[in-house]
Design a protein around this nucleic acid. Structure first.
Lengths: 250, 250
DNA sequence: CGATCACTTCGGCGCCCGCCGAAGTGTCGC
DNA sequence: GCGACACTTCGGCGGGCGCCGAAGTGATCG
């Protein structure tokens, strides 16, 4: 039947007649500089144009052009403050798109250039924020510990168990009861290649950890260090072993 | 604190030192022809190189080059059979990536060229497969009816209720109990801009509908028509109104 | 075994797009 | 007001990449 219809089909390039313009959006991310911008903004904070230009190693004028495109394409949202142009990811959906892309994408083959770069790299691999939740060795370990203790359950998709809800309430973690956002969502970690915890609960946990001084940011990067208080809380609350909570310097 | 540290930061283009190569993957989708290939494969079936070339309106040689890139980038998987080269999306993860992209991407501004194109367009908008589940007006209506009847629940993320499990069992729908794949997942419909049902349950329902003759494919496209049997089943099982189940010709 | 067909390889063309630096606009602080 | 600074605009350069058609390979069929 299919062959018969093919005979009568007009020779039309009907590829895009309707359908969303995938390429338009993908092209925005498909450039090394703009991709670097996206990854930088995954830390959930707003960056200025100059910061991004410096981070990606391009001229300010180049950064401006890229930002114009990204804002016009609704991937970034901007906010002008005096002489500064702050940008952030437009919304949750864009953040998830970039996470998905990052999970699929291969590691960039970049020789580690210096000692400080190696250090920064290892700090990121150990613990970092990923948009608004926690990633890296520690993030993955938390997700696995929560699984083992029956706080979350992976059978037929990720789900927060009753015990998990109680555990959060016990800790005093306030989960944003947003109607649309899933309570728990898995996010493939791009250093560990194993899932860590995202979604409303992931975000709430991360927020809670900052609020209670369990961890703090390393400079202005998205790397974080676990404090003594954090080590105490995580090892008693989730039985995370000491080796995982402390970063081994390379 | 952040400002102080910034002063001491070295002037390095450390953008990609570590980190996944987003741009590499995004660039693969960021081309009109390759994007058309991706959308075509969203129907979940394997296409031959020539079919894709014709669909996108490019020469066979061009298609070959694109397919080489997409396979090398692990977005497509290929299977050689005699003189045919069949390709399909490499895995579930890629399919979801493309769905996410499609949900964000704007509609392609393409003037409808002919009557038959308009017809095809309206058929797709009414009911179509999206990878392995059902989309379009009908897909969205099913998801909403299931919500109203308490078979699925959106509070704190999408979840299959007890009643929903019972309903499926009652219908005789066999849900693949894959450990990793979520039972229910929402997928933003790009014609309706509202969510329809994906995940293991979405796939099982779609499979069930084909098996029981509730719907059938329109030629070799991913559009489907609801049969009389399907209208009966869906209106009695989910109280879907007749207007939604029958396509209004434009 | 020769015709046909699906796919591939290659050379060459043209355009798109990312880059920069120089000059311009707007904001802030003194 | 004047310098410093963040950002923007513009012209121009260069490389990358998507396209094609022609010629080649290998499978299939009569």
């Amino acid at each position: 039947m299919e062959d018969m219809n093919a005979k009568f089909a007009h020779v039309t390039a009907d590829a895009g007649a309707n359908s969303p313009d995938l390429a338009l959006v993908a092209r925005l991310i498909g450039d090394d500089t703009r991709a670097a911008f996206c990854l930088a903004l995954l830390d959930g904070r707003a960056w200025t144009a100059t910061e991004l230009a410096r981070h990606a190693g391009v001229a300010a004028s180049t950064a401006t052009e890229h930002l114009n495109a990204l804002v016009a394409g609704n991937l970034f949202a901007e906010e002008r403050q005096g002489r500064h142009r702050y940008v952030r990811l437009a919304n949750q959906q864009v953040a998830e798109l970039i996470e998905n892309l990052a999970a699929i994408a291969p590691e960039r083959a970049t020789p580690v250039s210096s000692l400080s770069a190696a250090n920064r790299r290892s700090a990121l691999a150990h613990a970092r924020t990923c948009y608004d939740h926690l990633a890296g060795v520690v993030g993955v370990a938390i997700a696995e510990a929560m699984t083992e203790r029956g706080l979350i359950d992976w059978g037929r998709g990720l789900r927060l168990t009753g015990a998990g809800g109680a555990w959060l309430a016990d800790l005093g973690v306030e989960v944003q009861a947003n109607s649309r956002r899933p309570a728990v969502r898995s996010c493939l970690d791009w250093t560990e290649r194993r899932p860590h915890l995202a979604g409303a609960v992931g975000a709430a946990l991360c927020h809670h950890a900052f609020e209670h001084g369990w961890m703090s940011r390393v400079g202005s990067t998205r790397a974080v260090t676990i404090t003594d208080a954090g080590r105490k809380a995580l090892s008693s609350g989730l039985c995370l072993p000491e080796e995982i909570l402390t970063r081994r310097h390379s």
